[in-house]
Design a binder for these strands. Structure first.
Lengths: 118, 118
DNA sequence: ATTTTAGATACCTTGACAAGTATATACCTG
DNA sequence: CAGGTATATACTTGTCAAGGTATCTAAAAT
């Protein structure tokens, strides 16, 4: 079972995002997630497996239950990829971009002004 | 053709990430992407379509060619989702977490002190 | 007007994944 | 040991997205 490599693919699944979000404020056992998310147990277990194998979570064993905890690393990866794009909207080039967009929409407004009254 | 909603799913595709990365340093026509990424033209066009419909890019028409430009909004969304997790590794709680991990691994180290000199 | 160039779209096939259902494993309790 | 609880895994099925190949459209160029 090799595919599903990229951390992006892992997080593309809504249920898995939900799980990660839950884990944000602390550990959870499978049963707890099952309840909080109102999902069938195998579904939860299977998604947890994927998350575990991708390094998003680790499991601690407490008797019959497995308690899952979040792991930052893979998410760091995602964040790292996003970083370069962040500048795209962080930098104040936004102003320039808006300007260019406008120019593209109304190229050299000849004649007709903005008003479209009869 | 509605599915594929989440911005995460869009970015989960490696080729699409490659395209976005290319667009990071400026506009590109389909042909340019085709060359730079060494991909068949329909492949590029189809991925561009997906990106366009998801709002990741916009197309400007220059005669027979379509020039694509990146659009920040959807990426902002991704970043927004990531934000809460960022604290997970940004905050200096890391120190505390490490501590707790250690305690879990070696519960109440009886005897042996930290020093393991003979 | 015909040909060439640039892209888009249609159709088909394949493969992967997620959900459902059922069953297996392990531990705890009486 | 029997029964229950907690979770993992096996197997099946339906869906959908991605790639390949061919074709269509529109705008140069000749």
């Amino acid at each position: 079972m090799l595919p599903m490599e990229s951390s992006f693919a892992i997080v593309a699944e809504p249920t898995r995002r939900a799980i990660l979000t839950r884990l944000l404020d602390g550990e959870r056992s499978v049963g707890e997630l099952e309840q909080e998310l109102r999902l069938p147990q195998p579904t939860v277990s299977k998604h947890l497996r994927v998350l575990r194998e991708a390094g998003f979570v680790t499991a601690r064993v407490d008797a019959q239950r497995r308690v899952y905890r979040i792991r930052p690393e893979p998410l760091k990866e995602l964040d790292a990829w996003l970083a370069p794009f962040r500048r795209t909207w962080t930098r104040h080039l936004d102003l320039l971009e808006r300007h260019l967009d406008r120019m593209a929409k109304s190229p050299t407004p000849k004649g007709k002004k903005t008003h479209d009254r009869p």
